[in-house]
Computed example of a mutant assay.
Amino acid sequence: MSVSIDVSRVRAEGYRFAPSPLAELGSAVHLLVEPAHHPAQNGWVSSVAASVEPQLLERLIDADFLWRTSRADMLLPAEPGATLGDELDAVDALSDETWVSAALLTSSCGTVPLHRELGSPLVDPAARDLARERALARGPRQIGFVDYVLDNPPRARATIRRLLEDCEAAFFAEAWAQLVPRLTADARLKHDVLATSGLRRLVDTVSPAVTVDDDGTRIVVDKLQDNATTADEAGVTFLPSVLGHPHLLVVHAPGWRPVIQYPVSGSAVAGGAAPGPATTVEVIEERLHALDNPVRLRLARSLIRGPHTTADLAEAWSLSAPEVSRHLAILKQAGFVTTSRRGRYVVYVFDVVAAARLGRDMVEALLR
């Protein structure tokens, strides 16, 4: 399952890399209302939650339809501005129909189907019913917010802008000052990789969940829904994010320039642990398969207590040496076992760190 972007008409200069204060603020408020998704940032979340007024957190929860389960497309600008104010001004320039569609029928998370045939919920009854149905499934606060947006779009828009500006004043300005040099450096690195090594190498540096097809005409992003869009000559925008880790967001709604917000690896905001390298769903499947066998689990129980040879393991579990070797090869391919040589013997060692990391990697891959 994936979101694909046709880039056959995009020239090298059509790929844009830049930090966005609005996109990173969207990640920040998602962190605050859904901290369980981001254990590496628990320190930062706790620090901010303890320092801001409880009323501000309540206001974020009231509007969490925009950033908890999914992220409103308008919060991921294709034309990043120099300041949050610049980007909010660009959002204000959107028509009410476009703003409401971006808010209530978002595409970026790829967790729910995108109904391309629907119009804006302000003018299309089917789109309005869909937005309300999704909100009803999330809870009373969410349906209250969606009805507020549908009943009075200008007032709702002003409320959201004021909320984001209050977040900037309360905690985000300080975080952004810390993050922007890191994000700028990563964006510059991506630009240089594209210029020197091409698109395929570029997407390799973005995430293992992003690939280019064999023809080099489509960017393919591993997501929970199958969808596709086409980038015109205006191109594709890449937004680096620290607070967004491990999410990989893709704006692919009709009429919007494709945007990919990707996590910057090996970095964290103050108070958080640095995230590890991203892992694909395919790798997780391989690792789970390696442990989904009683014989391999027995071998792992022996190896986790200390290094063993094939002969040791065969004797301990009454198995043949070829059978042990076959299972060890699967464990080694999955990254759970390494080998070393002691004289004429090959010794197998269980990687405890790799096993401990499996749960975290699986959650991050599923959340991406």
Rank of each mutant, 00 (worst) to 15 (best):
E97I: 01
A185E: 07
L118E: 05
L248Q: 12
D124W: 01
I61Q: 10
P21N: 07
P21E: 05
P258V: 06
R16A: 07
N42M: 05
L224C: 07
L331W: 06
S4K: 12
E87Y: 02
R9T: 15
D73P: 09
V269T: 05
L249V: 00
A137E: 04
P307I: 09
V250F: 02
Q333D: 10
F172G: 03
D222Y: 07
D92N: 11
H252A: 14
L313A: 11
N293W: 05
V363E: 04
R9S: 15
L104T: 01
E315M: 07
A72K: 04
L248E: 11
A127M: 13
V29Y: 01
A78K: 06
G216H: 04
R341W: 13
G266D: 07
S265E: 15
S4C: 06
L202R: 07
V112I: 11
A314V: 13
A278H: 03
E286A: 08
Q261L: 14
S8H: 11
E286V: 02
V206K: 03
D166Q: 10
V193P: 02
T309H: 06
G119A: 08
D312H: 10
L194T: 10
H30K: 13
T205S: 11
S241I: 03
R138G: 02
D192T: 13
L248P: 14
H37W: 09
L66W: 08
D151Y: 01
K190C: 02
A93H: 05
P322Q: 08
A290S: 12
S46I: 03
T111M: 07
T338V: 13
L319W: 04
A131L: 02
L94P: 01
G359D: 13
G14T: 07
P113C: 11
A93E: 08
D64H: 12
P240R: 08
D222W: 07
L22W: 00
P140T: 15
Q55F: 12
C109Y: 03
E165R: 00
P277M: 05
R141T: 02
W176G: 09
E364H: 13
D129Q: 15
V203P: 06
A329L: 12
L243W: 10
V221W: 10
A82R: 15
A270V: 05
G43F: 00
V251H: 04
A274Y: 02
V193M: 00
L224P: 00
L32M: 14
L243D: 08
